[in-house]
Amino acid sequence: MRIVHYVNQFYAGLGGEAEAGIGPRALEGTVGPGRLLSQLLGDEHEIVVTLVCGDDYAASNTAVAEELVGMAREAGAELLVAGPAFGSGRYGLVCARLVAAAEAAGLPALASMHPDNPGISDAGGAPVVAAGASSRQMRPTLQTVAAAIAKLATGANLTVADGRVARAARVGQLVDQRAAARAVELVLRRLAGDRESTEVPVGGFDVVTPSAPVDKLASATVALVTEGALVPAGNPDRLESARATRWLRYPIEGMDSLASGKWESVDGGFATTAANADPNRIVPLDTVRRLERDGVIGRLHNELLVTVGNGTQVASARRFGVEWAAELRKAGVQAAILTAT
């Protein structure tokens, strides 16, 4: 196959952050990690052109993906390979968008990045195989990529066994055995001790260990936290309306209620009219303050922790959760009420 390989400015050897603003360009033959990939691929497949773009330029211009796909086509690509991007956010995002754009244009494509790369979901249903967390895992990652390329060349789809990660498009296919026979076979395998085999892999999420129950609510400190993007009117700290990269804290000490006009939700994922008319609909400060006064809880924590859950990557959300837990524990908080939209 004629392969066109995409790498960022760093792996192309053009420079680091100072060169992250450079636009798309095509280089003849293999560059950087493409050299080892080419060796691993052997003689059957050839990397004819390497496309390069600066991470900042490519990540901030969504039209770049289509432009690069056009360049790959001009080079006669039969397959576009992007990365490996490892854990790098901008690079991963660009690789993901690139394979999504290529597949949408009918050009087979393959990206590689770490499963926790925040850009991974932008690949849509286009194939992505797992990379290590950093370039120290270059060789084993490229071995996975090379094996995936060889399989794609036969016209087969990649599966979990090939290191496939992220969302996979469902493709109809004819199989020899009817569903009932396959189901019985799976049951027999399970009875024989196989816990992994399935035809429908379910997305993996963390197993969350529930915290121990609060012993005495009447003396407990309770915190309010939300992913509904409730911020002071005007959004002074510029919280994102989607795909949060951070969280914020706001003092609520001495406040009996969240006043309309003083607070607003900047969440881009739902109609905020009701929440803005009465922000207690999204963070129940008025009620919790009353319960504090009535002695039902000991104390309300003096800060509201806020982020936006709209389109936010699981990896980012996991980090916010860990940081919130550490923060609240340090402040002596025993329970948190998370309102989620």
Binding site: A274, A275, A277, D278, R281, I282
Partner: peptide, 11 residues
């Protein structure tokens, strides 16, 4: 709650 846009209310 009773609705996505108002987890702790009901307009």
């Amino acid at each position: 709650g009773r609705g996505i846009p108002y987890p702790s209310g009901d307009p």
